[in-house]
Amino acid sequence: MEEILEKIEDLKKQQEQLVFQDFQEETAWVIGSRIREQAVEKNYPVTISITLGRRRLFYCSMPGTAPINDDWIRRKENTVYKFHKSSYEMSLYMQLKQDEIGRRYGLDCAEYAAAGGAVPLILKNSGVVGAVTVSGLAENEDHDLVVGVIKDYLSARAVLKPDK
């Protein structure tokens, strides 16, 4: 239990760092393309989606994926939009509470997933405005793939908040 609590705290701190000054269609293309490049390099069978206000700005499905990955994408994105936190944090929270997202919150499990891979797209002075989502790997790997690319993108623009 202590390990899960620590990981949740780490994810909360991580989310505080992943804040964009602005986010445009071009930003989605760059981030989505970089996730795809890493997937190609590592031969990852993933589906990638980036939404802004529920508007899909980037989508890619790599070899080895199936229509079920589209369902996972939708359900993980719904979780981000509902709770304004990563779907991985929600997964860990559900593990901590030994519960399921549907039962705990009265949600339809066909529409929401507490499974890692969707990261909130946070805009400075606006909050959560979208989601960057990957499906196809283990939940922590989906999450880490997204976060790694976002961190690199923000670092290159010198807007990543330093660790506290």
Rank of each mutant, 00 (worst) to 15 (best):
K12H: 09
K13Q: 10
K13T: 01
Q14I: 11
Q15S: 13
F20Q: 04
F20H: 06
D22V: 07
D22L: 13
F23M: 08
E25S: 14
E25N: 12
E26C: 05
T27H: 15
A28T: 08
I31M: 12
I31S: 12
G32I: 03
R36H: 11
A39T: 05
V40I: 14
V40K: 15
E41T: 08
E41G: 03
K42Q: 14
N43C: 10
P45W: 11
V46T: 06
L52K: 15
L52F: 05
L52P: 02
G53N: 13
R55E: 10
R55N: 12
R56D: 00
F58P: 01
F58H: 08
C60Y: 15
M62I: 00
P63I: 13
G64N: 07
A66M: 09
I68C: 00
D71P: 00
W72Q: 01
W72F: 14
I73R: 10
K76Q: 09
E77C: 02
N78T: 04
N78F: 09
T79D: 01
Y81M: 13
F83D: 07
F83W: 05
H84E: 13
H84S: 10
H84Q: 11
S87F: 04
E89A: 04
M90C: 05
M90D: 04
M90T: 02
M90L: 14
M90G: 03
L92P: 02
L92Y: 01
M94R: 10
M94S: 05
M94C: 15
Q95R: 14
Q95H: 11
Q95C: 07
K97V: 04
Q98P: 04
E100F: 15
E100I: 12
I101M: 12
I101H: 12
G102I: 01
R103D: 12
R104V: 08
R104Q: 14
Y105I: 08
Y105N: 09
Y105D: 03
L107W: 11
A110L: 15
A110P: 00
A114V: 07
A115Y: 12
V119A: 06
P120I: 04
L121G: 01
I122F: 00
S126N: 12
V128L: 01
V129N: 01
V132C: 14
V132I: 15
V132W: 00
V132Y: 01
T133W: 08
V134H: 03
S135M: 05
S135D: 04
G136K: 03
L137F: 10
A138K: 14
A138M: 11
